[in-house]
Write a protein that binds this DNA or RNA. Structure first.
Lengths: 211, 211
DNA sequence: TAGATTGTTAATCGATTAACAATC
DNA sequence: TAGATTGTTAATCGATTAACAATC
């Protein structure tokens, strides 16, 4: 089944399958069933097959999937068959953690530039990366050919930085600031909202206690 | 409509409403309509009313909602009418960033203890918080009366730490390690998966380019 | 051939949206 | 009263699950 609108939940799971397959591949596993993938990432076997079916027929009936092939297909589908250059604004503790976050590199993401407007941070190094003044943002985005920006500034500064990213021509934003950003429709944006996740937990803990 | 099963998406949005209401309340806004809340967090007005209706009738027809009251109700529903003590394992860059993350405190979350098994990290300070050896985890969880644990260790160590948290009697886990953890059903777990979010972005950028 | 597992369809389940009566 | 906005129901939409024929 090609060319259907793909649910975002499917894309999210595809990313999980992909990472799991990469691990299996490194371990030398050559063949795997939908049931084993399902168990490995915590979903149902039918779901795995349905998700993959959006993009093609990758398996062999009676046998399963070739791990290395399926790994490559999933990477291709996710756009990870080539590396991605990112830029990050906000060289605070979170920005620092993201710049040094190993799992990004494994998947082909490299933060090429980090920016801040705080004089006490500019010029300092994060690994091999020098924190640059926000004034040099546009210049560097072009130089690195970055299409994705990460926002790791305090809530109050987030909209301003989002505007800057849009104006500079970035196409996608990963936002860690806990605010809803106003962004034109043609820009992809996803929020990583740390408090919200915790609050889902406290809500559920409350449910148990009250019953 | 009380006592229905509440969709997780509703809880997530409730958390967004709650934070938005807190901001409005601080700004001195006293009354607000579902349409204004909707605009503030980026959903539809019908959705706001439907979400709130799971928990009661908080508004006045023809008028809207009292900001301060609704703020308090949402906090109560989310279990945020009292503070929460958290413990965190993994004093790397991400653990450090989480320990110093301001937005947690605003919502009543305090990381009371940080643990690691790396001798080079133990004894160091994160703010006023001393990094303790993992051996003292259980003792301190009891002391702090913590019910929620945060996992910020490398993928390979994550399952082991999850087991430790379960054995210690924690009831909920926020996992930042990019692996699926095996956890008994009665423990609440949510994953914050940074790469996955980026990959949803690259997938979507690919869609645009291919058309 | 017998056993296993995929790909796909149909059935189920759940969430969102639209519409509007109730009511301030 | 007229205008505004909620709470709720019904309609729509979409995603997940179950089942099974196809086929290795």
């Amino acid at each position: 089944m090609k060319n259907l609108r793909v649910p975002e939940a499917t894309v999210t799971r595809l990313s999980l399958y992909s990472r799991f397959l990469e691990r299996l591949d490194k371990m030398g596993v050559t063949t795997i069933s939908s049931g084993e993938i399902a168990e490995g990432v915590g979903v149902s076997p039918a779901q795995v097959r349905k998700d993959l079916a959006y993009f093609g027929e990758f398996g062999t009936r009676g046998v399963g999937y070739n791990v290395n092939d399926l790994k490559k297909y999933t990477l291709k589908i996710l756009g990870l068959d080539h590396p991605w250059s990112l830029v990050l604004v906000g060289a605070g503790n979170l920005g620092f953690a993201l710049c040094t976050y190993k799992s990004f590199n494994v998947r082909g993401f490299t933060i090429k530039g980090t920016f801040d407007n705080d004089q006490s941070k500019i010029g300092k190094n994060i690994g091999e990366l020098e924190v640059l003044p926000i004034e040099r943002f546009e210049e560097k985005v072009k130089e690195y050919d970055a299409r994705i920006g990460i926002i790791a500034v305090p809530p109050k500064a987030a909209q301003e930085i989002a505007d800057l990213m849009v104006d500079t021509g970035l196409e996608a934003i990963l936002n860690f600031a806990p605010v809803a950003l106003n962004i034109p429709d043609h820009i992809e944006i996803r929020n990583v909202d740390l408090s919200v996740k915790l609050e889902v937990l406290t809500f559920n803990l409350g449910l148990h206690t009250n019953k």
